[in-house]
Amino acid sequence: MTFVGGYWVLTTQHEIIDTYDMEVELFSIWMKNQGMTKATQQAYLSDTRSFLHMIYPNEIAKLGKIDVMRFLSDRRERGAGDEARNRKLSSLRAFFKALNEMEHIQINPAALIAKSKQEKNRIPTYLEEDQLESFFQSIAGKYQHRNMAILLLMAFAGLRVGEIHRMNIQDLHQDGSIHILGKGRKWRVIPLPESMHQVLIRSLDERIEPKQSKEQGFFISQFGRRLSVRMIQTVADQTFEVLQQKMPALNGLKLSSHKLRHSFATMQIRSGTDIRTLQELLGHSSIETTQIYTHIDNKQMKMAMDKVSSKIPLSISSRN
């Protein structure tokens, strides 16, 4: 239903798609030329189509800041949190920027809308070292070595799911390093420990023969295609399920593939890795993103306070 001229009118998805077909096509072309990943393109298009559905049948060129804010307010009322709201705003900023650069419109009504302030210093969910050990003992099945390599790359190299999905055979080098294509199409080089390098070599030796000989994906599915993002997430999810059966105390936590990346970052900080190096390892464009991992648990805080306890003047206690 769309409110038009004082009346509610029944509209179909096809009508909305036809109305904004040119704008969506221009946006798609722009995103591809920007080198955005397929996952980013799909996410941006999904948010944009939701927006277009809401503003139909208004012309794009006549939209203003209020139209974007009305959409964001509607999403918040439907349950979207600050993070989801900011992602939708980023999608619309990109959408209008694309149309502007493609000379389809003259303004970007989303450009000056402020992002929501998100909760800072929120401690990410991560696994302790003993929990990680039990996690890797939970890996089993026909593709055990492949899955072991995938999960090691998350938990002990800090890779994102999408980065593992994009990994090619030639990205593993003889010197033990891997070259990773991360967010923003930025490459980073990660020197792997020898033990992990050997696991990857074994995984490559046991690599399933792809259906197409030109397929260079490092990890191949049982169907002979590059392992999908969803399947990589499933590998982690299934292993977490086994872990939670062994460790019921973890049942209250929302464990997912990204939590392994959190675990990697936490281990690095606890081992004394400086935040700038950690930023490079994680492939963060901003050091502010990396700073969420500088959380310190109670044990470390107690150790820090114990260091100064010997410096408290003894005469203080005698005054009481």
Rank of each mutant, 00 (worst) to 15 (best):
L99Q: 00
H165R: 15
D237S: 08
M267L: 11
R166C: 10
F223I: 05
H179V: 12
K88D: 13
R270M: 14
T12W: 12
V4P: 07
L89G: 01
E215H: 04
S271V: 09
Q174D: 09
N100I: 05
E129D: 12
A140V: 09
L159N: 02
N121L: 07
S73G: 14
F3D: 03
V199A: 02
L89E: 02
F218I: 01
H262P: 06
I316E: 15
R122I: 15
D306G: 02
S50G: 15
A43F: 04
E209P: 10
M154W: 01
S257K: 01
M167K: 02
Q268M: 15
K183L: 00
L127R: 13
D205V: 13
D175R: 06
G217R: 02
R166Q: 13
L151M: 13
G64S: 11
N168Q: 11
Q222W: 07
R49S: 04
S310T: 12
R76C: 10
T40I: 04
S271M: 12
S317Q: 12
N121A: 12
Q238L: 14
V242K: 14
N251Q: 14
L260G: 00
K307Y: 08
H14Y: 08
R207Y: 09
V235I: 11
P248C: 00
A110C: 04
W8P: 03
M231P: 05
E280W: 12
I113E: 00
F223R: 15
T37M: 11
Y56Q: 11
G162F: 07
K117H: 09
E194K: 13
R276M: 09
D205Y: 13
S285Q: 06
N86A: 01
K32L: 10
V229Q: 08
L282A: 00
L172P: 00
M196Y: 03
L204C: 08
L153W: 02
V229P: 03
E215M: 07
A157Q: 07
R202A: 05
Y56C: 08
Y56G: 08
K115I: 06
V308S: 06
R70T: 13
R207K: 14
H53E: 13
H258C: 06
T125A: 09
Q174F: 14
K115F: 13
G182S: 06
A236S: 09
I220M: 01
N168F: 06
G283W: 03
P124I: 01
E59I: 05
I66G: 05
H104N: 07
Q268G: 07
R78H: 12
I60Y: 07
E23I: 05
T239E: 04
A249R: 13
R78M: 11
G184A: 03
S138N: 12
S50Y: 12
S28L: 14
R276D: 03
S318H: 13
T125L: 06
S91Q: 03
S286V: 09
L282V: 03
L255I: 02
K214P: 05
Q245E: 14
M1D: 10
I55H: 06
S310E: 14
R78G: 10
S286T: 11
K97C: 10
E206L: 15
K183F: 01
S73M: 08
Y143F: 08
R319P: 04
D74Y: 15
R146A: 06
I220V: 12
K117S: 10
K302M: 13
T234F: 06
G79S: 03
